[in-house]
């Protein structure tokens, strides 16, 4: 059983030999970038560089997937926001939104650009997906991600205003989120056309650290359902931060699997959702994988598996400066321990 078969069987809830170790979020490493001689700031703007870099995590460490893009600004950029890729930065700086689309409450009534599917870097992403598939698609599942409607809304307008309005004028926000969902459906469908095996929907902004479970159900869930239902392949819903009180709602959004981070008590979630549910997670990609010792990496992988994750998967993007020996320890431990369960 190769990594691709293992991951796809997992999504189909068929029997597999061991817990897979993969991600639906960014997982490129500095080791990979340096090996190719690329610069971090350059790979966001070049399909070939993006795809080649994304493939290195599998090629160097046996990581069981290939994922593009690397940044979180693709959708907002296609909608018309200006992004900053920090072209002059020496180190690693992820692109951010420089210019918002909505500047006040009065501007919230927006329409989508009719040619959204061909705007910004969406064609570039499709090309990167095709290249990545051609390169390693027989060996691993190839994934991509879109933001969740609320997180995207928080990029195209002031998050401060969005949060207050979600309390004061929930109807207005719900309307905007519905438009965001339409945009994300268009983007996700383009990625599916390019051949991705699974899509992760990243609704980071709607964590229970920020919004109440009640607001999550009333306001966040309906547009999320719209996006997830439109994905015809496998889907994963990721939310970081505290999520124990919303895991049931996350499942109600209808994804194939949910993804949670280290703040989630997975044993507790497993009890709530039952043995059949696919729960991916939930190690701390920075404090364990980047700055932890090999022993901490190994013990954390064992804990994830003991707590009952369906796949060992990071709580967020893997930070590129991850030491290669920790990547190796992670893969090794999951291979040894993941088959025993």
């Amino acid at each position: 059983m190769n990594s691709r078969e293992r991951v796809l069987k997992l999504f189909k809830k068929e029997a597999i030999d061991r817990v897979p170790c993969f991600s639906g979020m960014g997982n490129i490493t500095e080791t990979g970038i340096n090996k190719l001689g690329y610069r971090f700031a350059g790979i966001h703007l070049d399909a070939k560089q993006m795809a080649e870099t994304a493939a290195t995590t599998y090629k160097l460490f046996g990581y069981e997937c290939g994922v593009v893009p690397v940044d979180l600004c693709v959708e907002a950029e296609a909608m018309g926001c200006v992004i900053n890729v920090y072209p002059q930065a020496d180190g690693i700086l992820y692109p951010t939104i420089k210019e918002k689309l909505i500047h006040s409450e009065d501007e919230m009534n927006i329409a989508l650009p009719p040619d959204l599917a061909t705007r910004g870097r969406i064609p570039l992403l499709k090309e990167a997906i095709r290249l990545l598939k051609a390169d390693i698609g027989n060996n691993v599942a190839v994934g991509s991600y879109v933001l969740g409607p609320f997180t995207l809304a928080g990029q195209i307008m002031e998050l401060n205003d969005l949060l207050k309005l979600s309390f004061k004028k929930a109807d207005k926000v719900a309307q905007l989120l519905d438009v965001m969902a339409d945009a994300l459906v268009i983007v996700a469908k383009e990625y599916e056309k390019a051949g991705v095996d699974y899509i992760t929907v990243r609704e980071m902004g709607a964590t229970s650290d920020v919004l109440s479970p009640r607001v999550f159900r009333n306001l966040i869930l309906p547009p999320l359902q719209k996006v997830i239902r439109a994905i015809s392949g496998f889907s994963v819903l990721h939310i970081c931060g505290k999520t124990n009180d919303i895991v049931t709602a996350m499942m109600d959004a209808g994804p194939t699997a949910i993804s949670v981070e280290q703040k989630n008590d997975v044993a507790e979630s497993r009890k709530k959702l039952g043995s059949d549910a696919l729960i991916f997670g939930n190690f701390d990609p920075y404090n364990v994988l980047v700055s932890g010792s090999e022993e901490l990496v190994r013990s954390t992988m064992r804990k994830c598996i003991d707590d009952g994750v369906s796949a060992v998967w990071p709580g967020c993007d893997i930070w590129p400066t991850v030491p290669p020996q920790n990547m190796t320890a992670m893969m090794d431990e999951v291979k040894i321990y993941g088959g025993k369960k």
Binding site: N160, L163, K164, S166, F167, K168, S208, D209, V210, L211, S212, V215
Partner: peptide, 8 residues
Amino acid sequence: YFVPEILM
């Protein structure tokens, strides 16, 4: 309370 309330 959550973040929207705190902001208000």
